[in-house]
Write a protein that binds this DNA or RNA. Structure first.
Lengths: 191, 191
DNA sequence: CCTACCGATCGGTAGG
DNA sequence: CCTACCGATCGGTAGG
């Protein structure tokens, strides 16, 4: 399926945002990567902000769809937290350039997109937290501070967003990688 | 001890860099927070870049001193990895505004400061990796992929850099917090 | 998709 | 620490 010029522009912009951040990336930078003049970009996008909104909301909705799928009745309750972690890894690895932007560049979103993004993120974290609480009740997970656990789990997955890091480390296949990550989160590093 | 005007300017700049990023923060923004005109900042700092370099290299050297202290003969080999993690938590919590900048804003450092920063960071990670390998040999840590383990450990600590997150979660005292973090890293979340 | 151009803002300097 | 000001670059528009 042929990519539209808009899609190509968004892809190059995402890479530049990862390299330099949204604010330090100029329309000229984006244009050069696409082999055109800066003014010509406006035939494909409305504004620089339009690019950021498209990238961030589309990745946010991918995580949103993923977590909603987990919370549905498809999985055994005992498996849901594990499945959510696997989903998070998969969405991250399959959308590496844009996933990185959810770490910081969302701050440059203007309203109302910023509120929309933060709402989706909050829903995601709330659902993830519910899965932890559920897993505790099922005696799958130890009874420690839920907030610390939630932040630790999500934080430990974040280095995957960095393409360079991930590609350097993970010459192994994805299912092996998933299994190493799950082992860390569930059982830690202790022998 | 009274803080110099330069120190006050650096502090406010650090907060702004955390809020908006280095590139999106203007000299005017920094000046307003200090109650002066933008041009007056140059009596205390050489340039915007000068601020970033001071902040990032000073935090880098704090982590550097911390890891060098661990690698010295002060601690039993079996305890060193654990002590390194505790040191990392302490340096993060005690320098919260600047620690956050090591995540992304180091990209805006100019040479030769950028190379200096990256060298310190590399040394830190190399030493941390050595501690993991040592712990494996001592049968303190399981025999899994070292690179994934290293990234997981350091990544799981990173949410602490975000002051809002940390303060929201950690109404508990620091030693209790340390203990929860160590439990996660060494033993995971499994019951 | 280009050339030509706009007002606004940027980091920084001169001079007091 | 201020006023006045600089050249450069920014995102974006007009018109073809």
């Amino acid at each position: 399926m042929k990519k539209s010029k808009r899609e190509l522009v968004l892809e190059e912009a995402a890479k530049l945002f990862v390299e330099k951040g949204y604010s330090a990336t100029s329309m000229k930078d984006i244009a050069v990567r696409n082999g055109i003049e800066a003014a010509s970009l406006y035939n494909h996008i409305k504004s620089k902000q339009d690019i950021l909104q498209d990238l961030l909301l589309s990745i946010a909705y991918k995580f949103d769809a993923g977590i909603k799928n987990i919370a549905s009745s498809k999985f055994r309750k005992e498996e849901r937290l594990k499945e959510a972690i696997k989903m998070h890894i998969n969405v991250s690895v399959n959308n590496q350039d844009t996933t990185y932007l959810i770490l910081q560049d969302w701050k440059h979103l203007e309203e109302p997109s910023k509120a929309e993004f933060l709402e989706i993120r909050k829903y995601y974290q709330d659902t993830f937290r519910d899965l932890i609480v559920e897993a505790k009740e099922l005696d799958v997970v130890r009874n420690a501070n839920t907030e610390i656990m939630l932040n630790n789990i999500l934080s430990s997955l974040r280095w995957i967003y960095n393409q360079d890091l991930y590609e350097n480390v993970s010459k192994i296949d994805l299912s092996q990688f998933e299994s190493e990550m799950l082992q860390f989160i569930f059982s830690g590093i202790k022998k």
